Computed example of a mutant assay.
Amino acid sequence: MDENPALLDSRAELSEFLRTRRARLQPQDVGLPNFGRHRRVPGLRREELAQLAGVSVAYYTRLEQGNGRNVSGEVLDAIARALRLTDAEHAHLTRLAKPKTLKKKRAARQQHMRPALQQLLDSVQSVPAYVVGRRTDILGWNALAAALFGDWGELAPADRNWARICFLDPRSRDLFVDWEQKASDIVSYLRMDAGCYPNDSELSSLVGELSVKSEEFRSLWATHDVREKGHGVKRLHHPLVGDLTLSFETLRLPDDCDQSLLMYHAEPDSASAQGLRLLASWGRDASAVGSQRK
């Protein structure tokens, strides 16, 4: 038996991704006439998509059946434009159609955060900050991040993972006001990881576990959505300080593109800024008590 099963059947994943992207477009969305009220398939037909991309129907059909081995970058670009893919979706399509062996080999490498990064996190006391890696693994954090999101240090290393926390820990639904959006974002990140590293057995195990334990995860995974969010706003309801509205910035680390530093901040002089100050004070007090008990 294969001890390192592939997460993705590349042909099936390419096929399903193209099908789901085609299904979300209607002829009128792309300037085509809509003849007839009853269409056998949702969204564009294959021949309509092929017309928009400037390729033959037979060629596009082979591609949507998962045969992307010899497809050119120019054709993928044309199909991406026809499907109105985002930059993240375009990159995902390219990875599925033309997977790279190097990426597959790198997937087996263990993730490690440089000690200097943890020192940097510890020096940042006024904003919650953490480093996240592949599979949404949480690799390092500062005290304020622990006070805001929960003490990840109390979890087993395998459970320091945003996907497991979001879908398997009921407290996350109380913490994130827009939990559905948080859940959708996490699944989209996992989809991108799966496209980059189709042979990552740990990712395969994570997806399998969540698919068994969470109906919501199964539903979101089936959408094949992918996206990247470099910045945005999160609304939280913290059990100690109440409602918080925080902006976040995602900074991808230049020496390891699989790791990102996330930092959260509040508008100056806002109620959320006051809430963060209270959490920072509470976190320092808790650390002091913990040190006295050792």
Rank of each mutant, 00 (worst) to 15 (best):
R218C: 14
G208P: 01
Y197W: 13
E209I: 02
R235K: 14
L236K: 06
E215T: 15
D200N: 06
L203C: 10
S201G: 05
G208A: 08
D185H: 15
S204R: 10
G230M: 12
V226S: 05
V212F: 05
H224F: 15
W179L: 04
L220Y: 12
E228R: 13
V226E: 09
H224D: 00
E202V: 03
M192C: 06
Y189C: 00
S188T: 03
N199R: 06
R218D: 10
H237F: 10
S188H: 00
H231K: 12
V212S: 12
P198C: 12
V241Q: 10
L236W: 04
L203T: 05
M192K: 07
C196S: 13
C196D: 12
H237G: 00
H224N: 09
E216R: 13
W221Y: 10
V241D: 07
E180L: 09
L236E: 02
E209T: 14
Y189Q: 11
S201A: 15
F217V: 10
D200S: 07
S219E: 15
A222W: 08
A183Y: 09
C196E: 13
G208W: 03
L190D: 02
R235C: 11
L206E: 04
V207Q: 04
S214E: 06
L220T: 06
S201K: 11
E228W: 01
P198S: 09
G230Y: 08
G232T: 04
W179S: 02
H238F: 08
S211I: 01
E216N: 13
W179N: 03
E180F: 01
D185W: 06
L190M: 05
D193Q: 05
I186Q: 04
A194C: 03
Y197G: 00
E215H: 14
S205K: 08
R227D: 07
H231G: 09
D193W: 08
G230V: 02
Y197F: 15
R227K: 13
S214K: 06
V241H: 07
K234D: 05
C196L: 12
A194S: 12
E216M: 11
E215S: 15
R235N: 12
Y197V: 00
L190T: 01
Y197Q: 11
E215A: 15
L210G: 01
V212A: 13
E202F: 00
V207E: 03
G232N: 06
